[in-house]
Design a protein around this nucleic acid. Structure first.
Lengths: 149, 149
DNA sequence: ATTGAAAATCACGACGG
DNA sequence: CCGTCGTGATTTTCAAT
């Protein structure tokens, strides 16, 4: 991927609603050239979509936690991600190297809701859990640096 | 926050570029009523912004890791987030309960870049690090469930 | 791959209820 | 807080290069 595409992706990562007109001005291209590049970036999957960034406190999900999980039966097939996908409190699921198999990022309304979620996770995927509660988030969702050459 | 605002936030979290016209159709309100609500949600900070979701593999940052940090000198003032903010490879910084003080989410181009980043983190914030490498990401950035009543 | 221009759609503010 | 309406901006497609 070359310079102008990187620049477009950088700009859209910072402001997902930036207009094609503005993108055109920032890149020095015409509006339709930018338009076509953005469509191609979307089709190629470089841009996977667009999202509003939500204040979880304001929205009633003030408690964030990281939940590391480990299978109870290490011989069983590992389909934890699918078995957990129905739990909408789970925002992300990463397979990781190390002692545990996945790290989940979860958002809930309260400590009680977290307790119930953990029970649900253990029951749904037959895993043990280790939970790290987030106290505050100095920053999050910082856009990637694609080398502003 | 009530029903219609929750619905708007849910829709924008799923598609941050959805037009006001579409939001109006989905909510049963007029375009300008939706417009007014979105502006208010933005001003109140419920919607913090909009971002394109980027495929980090496609963009040359295929290696994701979680880095937990702990101060070398527990008595020193804890300003790690500010001291690390200049490192653009750090996507997020969460203060956490437990043995360690922060969890960082980082994105880099290669194992070598990760090694250099870790040295930079330790030097910049006077901390020790413990790193968990992400092998794959079954899902990420799932929109919050604000109770579709 | 890029442009310019036409046509359709949309954003946005003013106003009245 | 909502709807109607009008204007200007934006998106989107297309022919041409």
């Amino acid at each position: 991927m070359e310079e102008i595409d990187r620049r477009i992706v950088t700009l859209l990562a910072k402001d997902g609603r930036m207009s094609f007109t503005d993108l055109a001005r920032e890149t020095g291209l015409s509006v339709s050239a930018v338009h076509q590049r953005v469509r191609r970036l979307e089709k190629r999957g470089v841009v996977r979509g667009y999202a509003a960034l939500v204040d979880h406190d304001a929205v009633g999900l003030p408690l964030t936690a990281f939940v590391s999980i480990k299978p109870i039966d290490p011989a069983a097939p590992d389909d934890a991600p699918e078995r957990l996908a129905h739990l909408s409190a789970i925002e992300a699921c990463h397979s990781v190297a190390g002692d545990e198999s996945y790290i989940l990022k979860v958002r809930v309304a309260s400590p009680l809701a977290l307790e119930e979620l953990l029970q649900n996770i253990r029951a749904s995927a037959n895993v043990s859990t280790r939970t790290t509660v987030v106290l505050s988030t100095p920053y999050e969702h910082r856009p990637p640096d694609l080398g502003e050459a």
